[in-house]
Amino acid sequence: MTFSRRFGTKVTSHAMTIRDPEQVDKSFDDVYAAYGKLDILVNNAGGQFAQPAMDISPKGWRAVVDINLNGTFHMMQAAARRWRETGGPGYIVDIVAVVWRGLPQVSHTCAARAGQIYLSKTVATEWAPYKIRVNCVAPGTIATDAFNYNSSQCQASLYQANPMKRAGDAQDIAESIL
Rank of each mutant, 00 (worst) to 15 (best):
T2D: 10
S4Q: 09
S4R: 15
S4I: 08
R5K: 13
F7G: 05
G8L: 03
V11W: 06
V11M: 06
T12C: 10
T12Q: 10
T12Y: 09
T17I: 02
I18E: 07
D20F: 06
E22W: 03
V24C: 04
V24D: 03
F28C: 02
D30W: 08
Y32A: 03
A33M: 08
Y35K: 08
Y35D: 03
Y35R: 09
G36Q: 09
G36M: 08
L38F: 09
I40G: 05
A45L: 03
A45E: 01
A45Y: 03
G47K: 15
A50V: 13
Q51D: 10
D55F: 15
S57N: 01
S57I: 03
K59S: 14
W61Y: 07
R62T: 14
R62Q: 14
R62W: 13
I67S: 14
I67Q: 13
L69F: 14
T72D: 01
Q77W: 15
A78L: 07
A78F: 13
A78I: 09
A78E: 10
A78R: 05
R82E: 07
W83Y: 13
R84I: 14
T86N: 11
G88S: 11
G88R: 12
P89T: 07
Y91Q: 06
Y91K: 11
I92P: 08
V93L: 01
I95Y: 00
A97S: 13
V99C: 05
W100T: 08
R101Q: 11
R101L: 10
P104F: 07
P104W: 08
V106G: 03
S107E: 01
R113K: 13
R113H: 05
R113P: 00
R113Q: 05
Q116I: 05
I117F: 02
Y118A: 00
L119I: 08
S120G: 06
K121Y: 06
T122E: 02
T122P: 02
T125P: 01
E126L: 01
Y130K: 07
Y130T: 01
K131Q: 07
N135A: 13
V137D: 00
P139N: 11
G140M: 14
A143C: 04
D145M: 13
D145C: 09
D145N: 15
A146N: 12
N148W: 14
N148D: 15
N148P: 08
Q153C: 00
S157G: 07
L158C: 11
Q160S: 12
A161H: 07
A161R: 10
P163Q: 12
K165C: 10
K165G: 04
D169H: 15
A170W: 00
A174L: 02
I177A: 00
L178E: 01
